[in-house]
């Protein structure tokens, strides 16, 4: 999920919360039993009545870049000094491969990233191994090699700020970026 999607979702949920806050609340009954009150008409009209259905706000169009980011997941994470795909990351790559099989016109670029605890050139080489590990995995799952490009950004493109284990763990990743074939 990229930042802009997060911001969109956050905005929507903030708006929903704001609406809820504005809605008048029914009076709270006192805890001490009192004389049974006479039935009265509802204080606030509920009409018109009818079923309420739900759905994603601005649901991603299937096959779009947003669909891939939100519903598939475009990033997997790596252990320290490692470029092997973690077992728990495999399902996400399986879904990526399936999604790419469903939309065969889409081409992607795998971007390898490293945390900041290494020298610049060496980390570029480390990031390349991560990108290649994902590329190899997707090819093994049937994605044609010609649809997958790779690049390493080394430690140059962190996604989480901070100099701590949590930030480094997020910054060791491979990002599957859609190059062409899918609307945004």
């Amino acid at each position: 999920m990229n930042t802009s999607t997060l911001i969109k979702l956050a905005t929507v949920s903030a708006a929903v919360a704001a609406l809820a806050a504005c809605a008048p609340k029914p009076k709270v009954e006192p805890a001490v039993p009192m004389e049974p009150s006479q039935p009265t008409a509802p204080q606030y009209p509920t009409a018109p009545t009818g079923p309420v259905t739900g759905g994603n706000v601005g649901a991603a169009m299937p096959g779009s870049e947003q669909d891939f980011v939100v519903n598939v997941g475009d990033r997997i994470y790596f252990d320290l000094d490692s470029y092997s795909v973690r077992p728990e990351a495999q399902p996400r790559l399986d879904v990526q491969a399936a999604w790419l099989a469903r939309y065969p016109q889409v081409t992607v670029r795998i971007e390898g990233n490293a945390d900041e605890r290494g020298t610049r050139e060496y980390n570029l080489a480390l990031g390349a191994r991560r990108a290649e590990a994902v590329r190899t995995y997707l090819i093994q799952r049937g994605v044609p090699a010609g649809r997958i490009d790779t690049i390493s950004f080394g430690k140059e493109r962190p996604i989480v700020e901070g100099s701590n284990e949590a930030a480094w763990a997020q910054n060791r990743n491979a990002h599957t970026a859609i190059v062409s074939g899918a609307p945004r």
Binding site: Y83, E121, L124, A125, A128, E132, R135, T136, T150, S152
Partner: peptide, 25 residues
């Protein structure tokens, strides 16, 4: 492949660098 880490030879006639191909640098 992806290129990185260029350095001139001291006489300026050569440049050494790395190329990443298939994840191997």
């Amino acid at each position: 492949g992806q290129v990185l880490a260029p350095r001139f030879s001291n006489d300026g006639t050569k440049i050494a660098f790395s190329i990443i191909r298939g994840g191997n640098t």
